[in-house]
Simulated scan of single mutants.
Amino acid sequence: MTQIPNPVFSPQDREREYSPSSCIGGNYAPYIEQYATLSKAALVGSAHHVELAYGDAAAHKLDLFLPAGTHSESLPPLLLFIHGGYWQELSKASSSFSAPDCTAAGIAFAALDYTLAPQACVHDMVLECRKALRWLHQHGNKLGFDPQRMVVSGSSAGAHLAAMCCLRGWEDDADLPLGTPAAAVLVSGIYDLQPLIGTSINDALSLDAASARAVSPQLLDLTGFPPTLIGWGEIETSEFKRQSQAFADLLKAQGAQYLPPIEMPGRNHFDVIFDQARPDTRLGAATHALFASLPVTSTGST
């Protein structure tokens, strides 16, 4: 597979390009606080929320939100969100801000926890996220959502993990059940991890050339990749934009079900994800259209 070489930067320029807060003056704390505030409100305001364990490790937990009961004969689809934080920050506790938008539209929502660095390497985080998808597929009907209409989404590092969950024939893990996930929404992600080597981000990750290549979807076979929506904010570094566009281009070149990528005006790396399920935004409208395109396969009462 022919790959386009990464741009050559000085160490200082590469550090800046892979520091998304460099576009907003360096202080991203207010956005993290907003994640937590909105997620807490989602928990308090939901009568249909449950915390579940998808494995035995302490971090193998997820928060599931279901829409209120309807007269529909079909089970609702699910948006599974994988948070960012450069594989070393955040948790599901600050990742449920899209739950109200989803449940209001008849879509179940789940926020996923996984073990963070340095306690886990990126490779093992990928395995954990894929484990969660297997568990959700196995238990979906009983839990009250359609396991054949699961869409995996992620922001930043979460978009990388979501993309790794879409791989078929990845030599490091058995395939997920056929049609799992049914689609993906990838926002402001990194799909080639090699440029992180030599930056401060890698201090906790300990990636080398081989381990970075093994978990870089940009460098792997994308045959069988599901329908995918890729987006990013207007106020992002050139490298974050390039990585997203390059991955979209590769999906198209490899014959995946390609959706035109979206750049969200006025949004930055940290607030663009708020739009993922808001129907009055470009990203949210595209996400809802993606759900509407999925065929209904499971029935039951919600």
Rank of each mutant, 00 (worst) to 15 (best):
R149S: 06
A174M: 11
A162L: 07
P147R: 09
P147V: 07
H160M: 07
L167P: 00
D175Q: 11
G169W: 12
G158L: 12
S155E: 15
A159K: 02
H160R: 09
V152Y: 10
A162D: 13
S156I: 03
G169I: 10
R168Y: 11
S153H: 10
L167V: 04
E171K: 15
A157Q: 02
D172C: 11
P147F: 09
A159S: 13
V152P: 01
D146C: 05
S156M: 07
C166G: 01
A157G: 08
C166A: 03
G169Y: 09
M150W: 03
R149A: 03
D146E: 05
A174K: 12
C165I: 08
D146H: 07
H160P: 01
G154W: 09
C165T: 06
A163S: 13
E171I: 14
L176G: 01
C166E: 03
G154C: 14
A163V: 08
G154L: 12
M164P: 06
L167G: 00
D175H: 11
L167A: 04
S156L: 05
P147Q: 08
C165V: 07
W170E: 11
A157K: 02
L161N: 07
R168Q: 13
L161S: 06
G154H: 12
F145E: 02
H160W: 08
V152L: 06
L176W: 00
D175V: 03
M150A: 02
G158M: 09
V152S: 03
G154N: 13
A157N: 04
E171F: 09
M164Y: 05
R149H: 02
A174Q: 11
L167C: 01
M150V: 13
S156Q: 05
C166F: 00
M150K: 01
Q148I: 05
G169S: 10
M150I: 15
A159T: 07
G158E: 06
L161T: 04
A159C: 11
M150F: 08
C166V: 00
A157I: 01
F145Y: 12
D172N: 14
R149Q: 07
P177N: 04
A159Q: 03
R149V: 10
G158H: 06
F145N: 01
E171V: 14
A157Y: 06
H160F: 09
G169D: 08
E171Q: 15
